[in-house]
Amino acid sequence: MRPVAISVDSPEISRNLAIKSGFTFPILSDPGAVVIRRYHILHPAGAPDEHDIARPAEFLVDSSKTVRWANFTEDIRVRARADDLLHAARQLR
């Protein structure tokens, strides 16, 4: 399973995040929220400075691009638990 993070942050900001946090997986930039809109998870004026961002969302996508597990939190403080995700990933064949 390959994790990929996506946000409206520029590649430069994402690079700082990767360096600071030691992330080695790809972090992609969608500054215009084009893909975020395509996935219907835009949070208009959701950032503290009121620009458009993504609402938190996680999709486990198999090789046929089918969603096998998804998580849409109701509260930004509550995020997906690694156990739930790993359980879903183990079901994949």
Partner: peptide, 12 residues
């Protein structure tokens, strides 16, 4: 990879 995990997040 058997799957890709797409993590959309609010930003840093």
């Amino acid at each position: 990879p058997r799957a890709v995990l797409l993590i959309f997040y609010r930003g840093y």
